[in-house]
């Protein structure tokens, strides 16, 4: 049952699974621990992306099928492309709407919303 290549794939998939799930957990923990929206966004957009991406890659690798691996890679690519865009939009919207940074912040060089523009 436990032939060489079979075992290697299982180990690689397991490593990806454990790493991905731990990154996801730490992202959620960061969401809870960071003091304000903007710092929370760091946790969600980086660790969260890597966590879900690793899990998707694990699923693609487990199938041992080039089509499914490609599909998982496409999903990973979608995720990596969309996560920063949504984080960026949310940060921009929150800042323009006037949600403040945490008191720990040292600088804020972004001028506050001139007027509510409809551009996004």
């Amino acid at each position: 049952m436990s032939a060489g290549p079979d075992m290697l794939v299982a180990i690689a998939v397991s490593v990806l699974l454990v790493a991905g799930s731990i990154f996801s957990l730490l992202a959620a923990l960061g969401l809870l621990r960071f003091p304000d929206l903007y710092t929370r966004m760091h946790a969600a957009s980086k660790a969260g992306t890597v966590g879900s991406g690793f899990l998707l890659l694990a699923a693609g690798l487990h199938a041992l099928d080039i089509a499914i691996l490609l599909r998982a890679l496409a999903g990973f690519a979608f995720f990596v492309l969309t996560a920063p865009v949504s984080a960026h939009l949310l940060a921009k919207a929150a800042h323009q709407a006037g949600y403040k940074l945490t008191n720990l912040s040292v600088t804020d060089q972004l001028p506050l919303a001139k007027q509510k523009s409809d551009r996004l």
Partner: peptide
Amino acid sequence: DMRLRPGIFA
């Protein structure tokens, strides 16, 4: 103890 010094720079 997260020693954060966040901010926005241009």
